[in-house]
Design a binder for these strands. Structure first.
Length: 108
DNA sequence: ATTATGACGGTTC
DNA sequence: AGAACCGCCATAA
């Protein structure tokens, strides 16, 4: 299952699982934690993942939820009280964004 | 080894 | 503001 020191996929899941409820991180941020710039790679891993982890806490750098999953993600955000910023009517596609300025999580 | 792909990111037009 | 373009990186074929 692995031939690297630390599986990229496994590492991604670890970092994602480390994000507190009500907070989020961008794909780029997660990649940065892995010491890489492969934001796309991170997204790819989550996409192929079984969806068991808190995938909704990883969003785009512009505050958009995972492509094609805005609906499912929204339920989690409201459940966790994640700061949202509405840009349109509720129920419409791409009607909200996560308030990155307030919800972005950072490790130290 | 080479090519294509994707829950991305940033710049440029 | 929206669309196009290029760069980055880990997989899959």
């Amino acid at each position: 299952m692995s031939d690297s020191p630390l599986d990229f996929a496994a590492f991604v899941h670890v970092v994602v699982g480390d994000i507190p409820a009500g907070r989020v991180m961008t794909y780029g941020d997660v990649a940065a934690e892995l010491g890489s710039l492969g934001a796309r790679a991170v997204g790819r891993i989550l996409a192929t993942s079984d969806g068991s982890g808190p995938w909704w806490r990883v969003i785009g750098a512009d505050g958009r939820p995972p492509a094609g999953h805005a609906d499912a993600a929204l339920e989690h955000y409201e459940s966790e009280g994640t700061p949202l910023r509405w840009i349109g009517r509720r129920g419409e596609p791409d009607s909200y964004r996560v308030d990155l300025a307030a919800a972005r999580h950072r490790f130290s």
